[in-house]
Write a protein that binds this DNA or RNA. Sequence first.
DNA 1: ATTGAAGGACGGACAACCAAACCTTTTCTT
DNA 2: AAGAAAAGGTTTGGTTGTCCGTCCTTCAAT
Lengths: 248, 248
Amino acid sequence: MASGSRDRATAATVTLPSAVFGPVRSQTAFEETVDRLGTAIKLGLLAPGAQLPAERELCARLGIARSTLRQALTALGQSGHVFATRGRGGGTFVSDPQPPADPPSQQMLDRWRETCDQRLAVELGVAVLAAERAARADLDTLDELAATLEATLEDFVAYRQADVRLHVALAEATRSAQLVRAMTEAQGAMTDLISYIAHPPQVLASSNAQHRRLLAAVRERDAMRAVRVMSEHLQGTEHILAGLLPGG
Amino acid sequence: MASGSRDRATAATVTLPSAVFGPVRSQTAFEETVDRLGTAIKLGLLAPGAQLPAERELCARLGIARSTLRQALTALGQSGHVFATRGRGGGTFVSDPQPPADPPSQQMLDRWRETCDQRLAVELGVAVLAAERAARADLDTLDELAATLEATLEDFVAYRQADVRLHVALAEATRSAQLVRAMTEAQGAMTDLISYIAHPPQVLASSNAQHRRLLAAVRERDAMRAVRVMSEHLQGTEHILAGLLPGG
DNA sequence: ATTGAAGGACGGACAACCAAACCTTTTCTT
DNA sequence: AAGAAAAGGTTTGGTTGTCCGTCCTTCAAT
């Protein structure tokens, strides 16, 4: 009635209301900590054997209480991702034989397209900004990582880790902490999706060629070419997923 | 010592540790609700005079308790963004003369580049996916919004609102709820930044020309051209900010 | 006059989080 | 060998945010 005359002003859409009025469930500090550290470990950003900062320092850096951090570390310990040794010189370490990844949840599979969309945005933004801002040292690092990547065509787990490192390094070249975080999140989600999918060496080889072209475009500061190559690179993954999952 | 031999494996960078070990401050449900509704109002997505869903329904949609929602509504009421009328046929409404926007905080100004980077990623992703997925109806809606936009060259506040609607509508055309939300967040942050900056009509006119070219590219499903135009479009804003703020 | 639908207010219960101690183990230093 | 130092492990108590349910008040429609 009274609101009827206003309806003209607001577009009657489907996605917008859900973006404004949709669920607001925020993760707890405990959950987010498990997520952050767990993702970093699963992605190999924290290598097996690596030592985490001391609890008293880490909780300060994370901005949480030590008891909350310990909950998270206990959870990561029970799932076999980290272990702790006591006494001076002790600490919390990333387990050396990492536990096997658990299969993607149904919810994860249902939302695979959203996951890919999110990654697309992050990667395109990173591609443009890296092309604008990458320093000489960044480019050298990226080349090294690409070389490492090309030596791991046979072992998909190793390949995936090196791949993640390359993409995260590209994000670091943008000098944007937020983009680095967004990239790790996106890669974590993607890893959950694709870890259970067979990747023949030929696919990885083609992927490597794209990496090389991407880095060349970044080195020449050709943002648009970087975007195009990146776009093609990501569509490879999407096509594979679209063929295997519903909603493709 | 023991960890020294592993250092080779982990890149000694600056941004990555802060992405993994950085603060984990999670907003409370109350804060996030104020933020979401407040942003939607400030962006004009909830127009002055518009009625919000009833409390009992809204708290269900937001997935929070009614008392928590009421805290948020009380806060928005005290800041003059909404008002409530009681009794049957009553409800919570967006105030008609909206309170004046408060000036951007120092923290906001310090992080302006991160804000722009975030927006860049979202907008580029949206540009690509909209070009791929926009339906006929979406394109018509976008054209209407562009036409509306071109009629508001004189009043910057009105122009900004119409601009936001266009960009959000483009995000809606991607059919990705997450991207729509990311877009509203990014636009909210941008509005805070640029609301206190003079925008002469000639700048807005040039911006409009870019909008038209953008929509043309989307209509022709030319994702790369859409990216290029969008990129130029965003750089306009960045140049203005870079000239006015430190760190440019 | 009655009813129904809306906002408004209150109180108990609970879970997350924090802060500050204190304990135990181990290694390094003197 | 003694002690200091540095790490994880434990306990306690308090604060805050959130939820749930109940009831009250207002007011338009019937």
